[in-house]
Deep mutational scan, measured.
Amino acid sequence: LVRYRTISKIPQITLNFVDLKGDPFLASPTSDREIIAPKIKERTHNVTEKVTQVLSLGADVLPEYKLQAPRIHRWTILHYSPFKAVWDWLILLLVIYTAVFTPYSAAFLLKETEEGPPATECGYACQPLAVVDLIVDIMFIVDILINFRTTYVNANEEVVSHPGRIAVHYFKGWFLIDMVAAIPFDLLIFGSGSEELIGLLKTARLLRLVRVARKLDRYSEYGAAVLFLLMCTFALIAHWLACIWYAIGNMEQPHMDSRIGWLHNLGDQIGKPYNSSGLGGPSIKDKYVTALYFTFSSLTSVGFGNVSPNTNSEKIFSICVMLIGSLMYASIFGNVSAIIQRLYSGTARYHTQMLRVREFIRFHQIPNPLRQRLEEYFQHAWSYTNGIDMNAVLKGFPECLQADICLHLNRSLLQHCKPFRGATKGCLRALAMKFKTTHAPPGDTLVHAGDLLTALYFISRGSIEILRGDVVVAILGKNDIFGEPLNLYARPGKSNGDVRALTYCDLHKIHR
């Protein structure tokens, strides 16, 4: 019993810090008490220290592992850092350059016999395009090294910054494609005289377009951006097909006994025919423009016929181009109408809503002055909100995010209106959640004399007048207030005048 009563005193000691020596009952000389009392004092002292730490809000209350900052290894790049964003855009520009100039170089340097010394005699450094290609190869190699040090988000939505895990993730992902696209074939085969082989191998750079397509997928929600990307894709495919079309004609031209190829026909049409040795002929500019003209006309199913396939190889390629053109029509131009419709969806919704308003007016036989006010209010409210119901949009977000959005939407009023000066951010967040926005066209009466005042109004834009009878008592403008002081009276009061809008007004109100 003594032991039980001794232990039962522990909660009292913990909360009230009572010393055991003052209790005459606990001072009985028993061996059990002498053993338990020192333990009680020690526990009391420890609990006292913990309570003191909690009340003082000291940093040592938290466990040590929670006080440590997340460790980022040296030379690790955050995937959302500004440097990584700028670097990704730079790589994107280099990939676009590669997609345009690599097929052009591979096709127009394929057994090209233009006048001038061969590239091997001039030297590697004197070729501007080769120098640019070398810079692109170096940048792609540097990009691989950067990807080995860039964080990523795993399946659990955690940012991984450990170098080993980053390397394994990159090896399992895009490393092989990036490595093949970054191989400097110019340096590996330079001086061997195989410019045709170098041009063909350099087309491996186009593998990076797969990554670019995935990154550009984030802009699919913007109709104008999608339309622009589709047109660029169409032009890029036409450019690639033009390079292939020229390569076919250029390879067949020296081996044909009869002059029936499209390059021969082009030379005869523009007065620059090929001679018996295969030299001469149109310039590279004429060849490229004509090839691009043929691919565009074939892809769009126009086909004027002034550039036509004559050999079997050219006919087979033309059939493939027609098939590609039909697929592009289905996948690209078939979506253009939907994209344009999405661009004008706001206008369509406006006309639909206006039609419903006019049908309501016609069905209920609203008189002319009231009908005009109804239409003007709808037009003004639509121009202010673009038909978007803010309350319906915010309803799907958590309250903390709703408060931040409301604070942002009402920031101008909260910053410049005098009653809100000096208020804490928590108070402003709470008030912003209570605001209701209303609009009024010129001549609209917001409050009639004798109406119950259940709200306090803040003028965000425009001006109003307060009338008693036919006498203008006051004219209020931006950041002015009218209405009933909230919670100042037990019952809502009545208006002693009319409140009429002089201009288009936007008002925020808080109800009782």
Rank of each mutant, 00 (worst) to 15 (best):
Y65E: 05
Y65V: 08
K66S: 13
P70A: 07
R71E: 13
I77G: 01
Y80H: 09
F83L: 09
F83W: 10
F83D: 03
K84P: 01
V86I: 14
L92P: 01
L92E: 03
V95G: 01
V95T: 07
T98L: 01
V100S: 01
F101Y: 14
F101I: 06
F108K: 02
L110D: 15
E114C: 04
G116V: 08
P117H: 07
A125K: 15
Q127G: 05
A130N: 03
V131S: 01
V132D: 01
D137C: 02
M139H: 03
F140I: 01
F140H: 01
V142M: 07
I144Q: 01
A155E: 14
A155L: 12
E157P: 03
V159W: 03
V160K: 01
S161D: 14
H162Y: 05
P163V: 06
P163L: 05
G164T: 13
G164I: 14
I166W: 01
V168H: 11
V168P: 01
V168D: 06
H169F: 05
Y170C: 01
G173L: 01
F175H: 01
M179N: 01
G191N: 07
G191D: 04
S192I: 06
G193D: 04
G193N: 05
E196C: 10
L200K: 03
L201Q: 01
L206V: 05
L209V: 09
R211I: 01
K215Q: 04
K215H: 01
L216T: 04
G223K: 04
A224C: 14
L229F: 11
L230D: 04
L230S: 05
L230A: 05
W245L: 01
N250L: 11
M251H: 04
P254E: 15
S258Y: 03
S258Q: 13
R259W: 01
G261Q: 02
L263D: 01
L266V: 01
G271L: 01
K272Q: 01
P273L: 01
N275F: 01
I284E: 04
I284K: 03
I284F: 01
D286V: 01
L292Q: 01
S297F: 01
S298D: 01
L299D: 01
V302W: 01
G305V: 01
N306I: 01
N312D: 01
M322N: 03
L323G: 03
L323H: 01
G325A: 08
S331F: 11
I332D: 02
F333E: 03
F333I: 10
G334E: 03
V336C: 01
Q353K: 04
L355A: 13
V357T: 04
R358G: 03
R358A: 04
R358Q: 07
E359L: 02
F363R: 13
H364R: 03
P367V: 03
N368C: 10
L370R: 01
Q372Y: 13
Q372S: 13
H380M: 04
W382I: 03
S383G: 08
S383C: 07
F397Y: 06
C400M: 09
D404A: 03
D404K: 01
C406I: 05
C406Q: 10
H416R: 07
H416T: 10
C417Q: 10
P419G: 10
R421D: 07
G426W: 01
C427F: 04
R429K: 15
M433P: 04
F435S: 02
F435K: 02
K436W: 05
T438F: 12
H439C: 07
T445W: 06
L446Y: 02
H448Q: 08
